[in-house]
Design a protein around this nucleic acid. Sequence first.
DNA 1: GCAGAATAATTTAGACTCTAAATATAGGTC
DNA 2: GACCTATATTTAGAGTCTAAATTATTCTGC
Lengths: 405, 405
Amino acid sequence: MVKTARSGAENGPVGPHVVRRVTASAVLDELRSGGPFTVSELVDLTGLTRATVIAVCEDLVRRGWAEEHVLERLGPQRGRPPRTFGFRADGGVVVGLDIGAHKTTALVADLRGEILGTASGAFRDSEPGARERLDVVSSTAVAALRAASSAPERVLAVGAGVAAPVDRSGHVAEGSDFWEMFDVGLAAALRERHGWHVLLENDANLAALAEQWLGAARGLDDVAVVLAGERLGAGLIESGRLLRGRNGAAGELAFLGLVDGAVGPHGIAQLAREWGAEAAAQSRGLAGLAPADVTAEAVFAAADDGDPAAEGVLRRLEGRMARVIAVLSTLLNPELVVLGGAIAPAAARLLPGIRLELKELTETPAEVEVSALEGEAVALGAVRRALDDVAERALEIDLPGSQAG
Amino acid sequence: MVKTARSGAENGPVGPHVVRRVTASAVLDELRSGGPFTVSELVDLTGLTRATVIAVCEDLVRRGWAEEHVLERLGPQRGRPPRTFGFRADGGVVVGLDIGAHKTTALVADLRGEILGTASGAFRDSEPGARERLDVVSSTAVAALRAASSAPERVLAVGAGVAAPVDRSGHVAEGSDFWEMFDVGLAAALRERHGWHVLLENDANLAALAEQWLGAARGLDDVAVVLAGERLGAGLIESGRLLRGRNGAAGELAFLGLVDGAVGPHGIAQLAREWGAEAAAQSRGLAGLAPADVTAEAVFAAADDGDPAAEGVLRRLEGRMARVIAVLSTLLNPELVVLGGAIAPAAARLLPGIRLELKELTETPAEVEVSALEGEAVALGAVRRALDDVAERALEIDLPGSQAG
DNA sequence: GCAGAATAATTTAGACTCTAAATATAGGTC
DNA sequence: GACCTATATTTAGAGTCTAAATTATTCTGC
């Protein structure tokens, strides 16, 4: 659909080596996604010739992406012992950052996504400046690297999630006054300080990647992940691709106001407080709390005790969520909607009600599940994003310690 | 984001010829998108060597995709006269079909998208059976080919739009009882009868392709096209790609009920009638029409005459449209929303009101324009779809009349 | 121990493609 | 007619793949 780019001139010179790029990618993909393989297995998997597979593997070993395994033969086998090659998951590391309003989390993972180290840090000020944020983020990342017994030089890519729209070029959308100045700062500053390749991304988008990778949406290609808590936003994946929209603002759910007449967008936690306080004020009970003391947790706890007013609040929340999911289902037709964010722990109890209402609201209801990734979805998604980037650039990257020219 | 497929084995054998495929694509893309070029120009455009470009061009000529032009030199020029090559737009044709409820339209275009012939046919029965539909569609397509002085054997691809969800594999989504049986019938039957390669697609999706190709959204990568009339649906393009969703149902706008409390989905024309009739019944005028006589056209005409009740209906329509567009803008963040379908002729007068309301409803309002493609959007989009398919498969297609083995 | 079977690695020959550099060609200019 | 210019063609060299032939390693059975 419409040309992508003046094709040739920019895509580097063509030549016999592009063939090698294709074959090397094929082999590397197999190695990355599976255990060590014998050459014969790789021949079967890729459809390439034995001679080619060996040449490619030796190439990959030289470049640091693969290693030859010394095989331990279990039982007696016939024939010449095969050579086996495996992916070098320790060829480098990636970092996943979840940069929140008050704190930041860093994960360090190997090239297969195994988490090697974690750290988190809090911003001292409640409204920290760019410098403060940058320092905390940077030192948290370094701390996670230390916990992983790794070092900044070994980092091949960094994924970073922020609670703001991020466009396709990795810039925080204009008009988002708070982040506007900081975004360029983050990617540029981390590159400056450590030489890192930073991929900035909206947090809900990363949560979606994480759910698709390790969570409730594992392996599905059409998914929406709703992050509900103080904020409300969604990460959308269609046909395996993140949707960002023109300015990176896709996935905002501020149409809530249109859906049931509320004024402006509201996080679910906020709503629970607000509606809970209403109920308390109307002296409908809620465990005798004063309206000012009503927290989201208190409402959920009261509902557990059978408080009818609190249960009424939950019904309203179910309705609200069902409407949001109904709009997503109708407009985007995902296979599954995952509920995540701060609401996740409480969401399980809303699920039956939501599913029931959803069926009435749309002809194409998605499945609905609750995230099981706890607080780590965004950081895990950042890891996934970084891994994807590394996989894409693999053959252009010179791995530290490789003997390649 | 997750592996796509067991890479190698299915992708055909690798070898030096894949390089040729790359270079040939690069040259062919340039030729297709521009006038005839001299070899030197192609060298600049593609970054390839002169020797390569000539070899590739001669290859393309042999395969029927390009032709060598005899140059007419305008003024005196220095140097050896260059060879020039051009795309052979007449190497074959594509067909675009708009299969509606009551009639069908067929366009025939050359490989550059120039429309060569048109035809349309009506179904005799109001609820025609599969056989009747198939016969009319087939003969309409053949009539359009005749009008284009072409023939069924020259058809390289057929795009076909239907008013039903179509999933990625080209099948009408299950549960859509009416089309369910017919869809497979259409693609299979046209292949059977004429050997055509048929690409079934949702009509709103095709309208979106058309707007992006020739219409108000020319060249934009993030667009939504709302088809409003008796029915209501949208075609969504994000990052240059159509969104289909899990079952092809993406773009449905039946969430309208959620947005302002209406029951079930309603086409705009229906609403105009309904609300107009309400207004008439409340004896608020509407040019003295009896409620039963109120048509959408009558409402718009009355508004033109300054009838306040009719204007009230238009305000309500503006509000409804603005809400729909607001949801699209917020959730998908397109750059532009195009209003098309039966509403298009009347929509221009709603535009100012819609734009004004939209700004109040979302933080990321899209631009809003009215389609200028008149009734042809779907059929044109079908042509575009077919052309894209041909472009993608170009080097695997044996063009009729080529001397390639 | 040793021939033979089984499996895999390595080598060799052949084909195709690209680039780069050298050579040839077709016009115009002086 | 000699020269200049822009282009075309040829030639040499390198990289890559496949396919087929050759060599290597191990186990089995006697």
